[in-house]
């Protein structure tokens, strides 16, 4: 057994037991789980998220280091790649957009393999890209859909999203595709990490913990919607209580709801201190967010200290008499 994922798994199980016990213990512990901890988690999330971003913003980038994936703009008759080696801000924005929304660089993921006659080659390895894209897009959809609990009246785009998401009208309550995809994708990414030896070797507890936690969130969510039901109207009333800053507990909602909310709170509070900060960090990647105009514009290293220089004019000024005496040529007589 690998301690790195065992510790993460045990941590998530302990968190589950804590929340479950708290939900069953009484109204006071439900208040802590349903009101106090969510508020604290949001606070920690926002404050430390900003701190992290500001910390990054204060770190100088000494060189202009955009990743170049195509011909740089040079002479007019040499074809340059405006997207893969952006020489303008527009190119950077386009490349950034494709990176953030479609994980374009991950799409280029290759795998070294040796085929017949010992010929080595690099094959496209798309499974990680597929899994990651499914995971992130489904997660985004799920989060956006949850706004139905936090807005009253429910906004049109949210109900539209819900209708699209339950397009296939499977069963009642209608199956949301995004929830199933999220659960499948997080399971895939977890299994991938455990089963592929090279990936397992470089995986740490901080890689497994968010996966187990999100697995728990998705699992408890699916459980609540399709199997062991909770009082949805009560859930919305509590969510609206948090939003309107008049929080209160609705009794008899069901323990899984508190487990779900506790997991989400832990995720939010853990977020700014973990690798999950790639949510903010992606925007600040110097290799992606910079214009590649190294040859066109001079960039000065921000931590360059002032260097004292002695120009030739100053030199001549200082030694002019001696230079003339020695017969050396001077620029000004």
């Amino acid at each position: 057994m690998n301690v790195r994922y065992m510790y993460s798994l045990i941590a998530v199980i302990v968190l589950f037991l804590l929340a479950y016990a708290g939900a069953e213990a009484g109204v006071w512990s439900q208040y802590i789980l349903g009101v106090v901890i969510p508020y604290l988690a949001i606070l920690v999330f926002v404050v430390f998220f900003i701190r992290r971003i500001v910390g990054w913003a204060k770190s100088p980038v000494p060189f202009r280091i955009p990743t170049t994936c195509g011909q740089q703009k040079t002479l007019p008759w040499i074809k340059s790649s405006w997207l893969d080696n952006p020489s303008s801000r527009l190119g950077v924005i386009a490349r950034m957009f494709l990176e953030i929304v479609f994980f374009r660089s991950l799409f280029r993921n290759t795998k070294f393999a040796v085929k017949d006659q010992n010929k080595p080659f690099y094959a496209l390895e798309l499974w990680l890209w597929v899994g990651a894209l499914a995971f992130h897009m489904a997660f985004f959809t799920v989060v956006a859909r949850h706004l139905r609990f936090f807005t009253q009246p429910v906004l049109f785009p949210i109900s539209l999203l819900e209708n699209i998401d339950s397009f296939f009208q499977v069963g009642l309550p209608g199956v949301f595709i995004s929830g199933v995809v999220l659960f499948a994708a997080v399971t895939f990414l977890l299994i991938r990490r455990v089963l592929i030896p090279q990936v397992r070797y470089i995986s740490l507890a901080s890689d497994y913990f968010p996966l187990f936690l999100i697995f728990g969130i998705a699992f408890s969510g699916l459980l609540m919607r399709y199997f062991s039901k909770v009082d949805v109207v009560g859930v919305k009333e509590m969510a609206m209580g948090l939003v309107t800053l008049h929080p209160h507990i609705v009794e008899g909602v069901g323990a899984i709801f508190y487990v779900h909310v506790f997991f989400v709170s832990i995720l939010l509070a853990y977020f700014p201190f973990s690798k999950l900060m790639h949510l903010g960090g992606i925007f600040l990647s110097p290799t992606r967010n910079m214009v590649n105009n190294n040859r066109a514009v001079r960039h000065i290293n921000p931590w360059n200290y002032p260097v004292e220089v002695h120009t030739y004019e100053e030199y001549e000024e200082e030694f002019r008499d001696k230079m003339i005496e020695a017969g050396l040529p001077v620029e000004k007589e």
Binding site: L147, F150, T151, Q152, P153, L155, V233, G234, K236, E237, M240, G241, V243, T244, L245, H246, V250
Partner: peptide, 15 residues
């Protein structure tokens, strides 16, 4: 959700 409620909606939030 918070400013949406206070600025735009203000609708009763009880079930």
């Amino acid at each position: 959700p918070v400013w949406n409620y206070y600025v735009f909606s203000g609708e009763t939030s009880t079930a």
